[in-house]
Design a protein around this nucleic acid. Structure first.
Length: 639
RNA sequence: CGGGAUGUAGCGCAGCUUGGUAGCGCACUUCGUUCGGGACGAAGGGGCCGCAGGUUCGAAUCCUGUCAUCCCGACCA
């Protein structure tokens, strides 16, 4: 390809809308253009990158025995209703774009394809003899993200490879899961990316085991925690650790464990209490009041007790609440600190001012939530409005009149502690769980705290967790039978008995991966693509297009390299040399061959983009020099 | 959704306070000179000043509304 024919439009100034380096560079170098918030056109250069990434993905998926397909993006609501994900994905902060067709049928644009594929599997897979099967596709996905950002990093339309496997038993699922794990490691390494596999939360997809693949980069949206010995790596959403030892409360239990009441005027935060009374944060139990919103209208107040020096992990909390109530009340739509705005919006019959916020204890009385009396009016206009259009049949919000009490072990394990006095401006010192009496009894004691960098590792307390940031480019799940049961995807096993299929699913954000590569491989002058996914492997630059000797030699080399199967670009523009060098650096072609002053004597210059290493060689030696270099680069990371 | 900011030529910006009919740099076109790290000179082309109302003799500028985009947040009572 000739640069003169490439529709190359590079920008000298950074576009104001771009924050992180990869986003800026993709815009400046003419790889993408924004069409709407979170929606981008992939220009010819980027399309070549995406195709190269896709090819690597295909080779590895095919090599692992998977079958390529292409599934519809437009999907009937009915399919999603059957899996139980329709309202979770469309109501509230749901991320599915959805619409009604001319017949009034509801449809959604696929954010993922579990439903469609499982329905197909139900249709096609009948016998254990057909199993296992692993189907994949590479295509656009649609997610109405709360906040699209960073270009392709979090777009609303993006390219994804997703694969779904079906099995006769769990052992077979684990086998394919392991094969995908290996395939993924090869894919990222072949793309030239440094990636780490981390334990992950399964989130809305559901299922048991899951692992994310993170490209390490400063601009990553995820915090990952790893041990120095490499034996533990997890997303902070999921990470576990040993908390620090608490500082024992001087004096221990007081007043038989009921605690001694202390006036704490206006001191409603851990910091205030510590400053005013010299308490250590680890001597306190903080009590957080949240409200969980369920699909069927249940509004469940949740009281979480956590040691004062610890931080609540939202994801763990949401999982715990879903585990306890999801089966009965449907999808968890959200869980947020209880606030007046929400109460007003949903017309909940609750007076926040009766609650001593900031001074709560684990034994807060259920009666403060009021009695089961007036119910929310089903035809309340506010509720209907907040539910949004096309949401016929939205459940009425109903407040549960008792707390769901959850306690983190860091709090449960304290012998004696300080906590809120359940009255404004008072706390209690020297409280024990036994002393609080039956009201404080937790519905569940379970891990709800966020592991922090510096925490001791579970597998080896001698090691401490280290933090780094990562961009999630892949995620593999063992789904189990969640979808197959919901959608009745069943097969006949060896003994003639019908049972639900075991499933796994495996995603790679192809367009995100391309940007992650830029994030990991760039410098002050532009992008430094790994050879294996670069839009072109080598660029021949004619330093002076007015010099016919240079042009002739460059054209010869260009033809020869092309004939040798190299993805080569020829910069034949009548620009000055400096402009062409700048552009070559910016768009990030890994190797540059300059035909310039030495052309008369048959000498050219070969420059490696990333390192700037330069060597002068005879034009006749170009092919033999370049071929092994490119061959090595095409393998991706070599170690 | 809450908070903050911004919409003026393809990109980056000025002009707005104090209303008088739009400007700078880059990019683009033509010509000349130049030619190995974003050249120089000359001459050009391109803008319902986001959109809709209002005030005014007159609005990019003032007022109201609206739309869009970006940033921070959805975190502790």
């Amino acid at each position: 390809m000739r640069v003169s024919r490439l529709m190359l439009v590079t920008l000298r100034d950074d576009p104001a809308e771009a924050e992180i380096p990869s986003h800026r560079l993709l815009l400046r170098a003419g790889y993408i253009r924004r069409v709407a918030s979170g929606v981008y056109a992939y220009l010819p250069l980027l399309w070549r990158v995406l195709q190269k990434v896709s090819r690597i993905v295909r080779e590895e998926m095919d090599g692992a025995g998977a079958l390529e397909t292409l599934l519809p993006q437009l999907q009937p609501a009915e399919l999603w209703q059957r899996s139980g994900r329709w309202s979770g994905y469309t109501a509230g902060e749901g991320i599915m774009f959805h619409l009604s067709d001319r017949q009034g049928r509801e449809l959604g644009l696929g954010p993922t394809h579990e439903e469609v594929i499982t329905a197909l599997a139900a249709d096609l897979l009948r016998s254990y003899r057909q199993l296992p099967v692993n189907l994949y596709q590479i295509q656009s996905k649609f997610r109405d993200e709360i906040r699209p950002r960073f270009g392709l990093m979090r777009g609303r339309e993006f390219i994804m490879k997703d694969a779904y496997s079906f099995h006769a038993d769990e052992a077979s699922l684990k086998e394919t899961y392991a094969a995908m794990d290996q395939a993924y490691r090869r894919i990222f390494s072949r793309c030239g990316l440094r990636a780490v596999a981390v334990d992950a939360d399964s989130g809305a997809i559901g299922g048991s085991a899951s692992q994310e693949f993170m490209v390490t980069a400063e601009a990553g949206e995820d915090l990952i925690l790893t041990s120095a010995d490499g034996r533990y790596a997890a997303n902070q959403e999921r990470a576990v650790s040993l908390p620090n030892e608490p500082i024992a409360l001087p004096g221990g239990a007081r007043c038989g464990g009921a605690g001694e009441v202390v006036a704490t005027p206006g001191q409603s935060s851990i910091e205030d209490l510590a400053a005013a009374h010299g308490f250590a944060p680890s001597q306190l139990v903080k009590v957080l009041l949240l409200l969980a919103r369920f699909e069927d209208g249940l509004r469940q107040p949740v009281l979480v007790s956590l040691r004062g020096d610890q931080t609540l992990n939202d994801v763990k909390l949401a999982n715990a609440v879903t585990a306890r109530l999801g089966a009965e009340h449907g999808a968890l739509l959200g869980i947020d600190p209880l606030n007046a705005e929400q109460i007003r919006q949903e017309r909940l019959d609750l007076d926040l001012s009766t609650l001593p916020l900031g001074f709560l204890g684990p034994d807060l009385d259920d009666r403060l939530l009021g009695a089961e009396s007036r119910r929310t009016d089903a035809t309340s206009p506010d509720l209907r409005r907040s539910a949004g259009p096309g949401q016929a049949g939205v459940a009425t919000a109903t407040l549960k009149r008792s707390f769901l009490r959850l306690v983190d072990p860091t709090a449960a394990d304290l012998d004696a502690f300080i906590c809120g006095g359940n009255g404004v401006d008072q706390h209690r010192v020297g409280v024990t769980w036994a002393g609080l009496g039956p009201t404080a009894a937790a519905d569940q004691v379970l891990d709800l705290r966020s592991a922090q960098p510096g925490d001791r590792c579970l597998h080896d307390p001698g090691q401490r967790l280290e933090a780094s940031r990562g961009i999630e480019v892949g995620h593999i799940f063992q789904l189990g039978r969640k979808y197959s049961q919901a959608l009745e995807a069943r097969f006949t096993n060896e003994s003639g008995v019908d049972e639900a299929l075991w499933m796994g699913c495996y995603g790679i954000g192809v367009s995100r991966l391309a940007q992650a590569a830029v994030e990991q491989h760039h410098d002050g002058n532009g992008i430094c693509w790994p050879v294996s996914i670069a839009p072109f492997e080598l660029i021949v630059v004619i330093a002076n297009a007015q010099d016919s000797e240079q042009v002739t030699l460059a054209e010869q080399l260009y033809s020869m390299l092309q004939a040798a199967g190299i993805d080569v670009l020829l910069d034949d523009r009548s620009e000055r040399a400096g402009v062409k060098f700048k552009d070559a650096d910016l768009i990030g072609i890994p190797w540059r061959l300059v035909v310039g002053r030495g052309a008369a004597t048959g000498e050219v210059e070969l420059v490696e983009r990333a390192s700037r290493d330069t060597r002068v060689l005879a034009a006749s030696d170009v092919l033999t020099t370049v071929q092994p270099l490119l061959a090595a680069g095409r393998l991706g990371l070599t170690n």
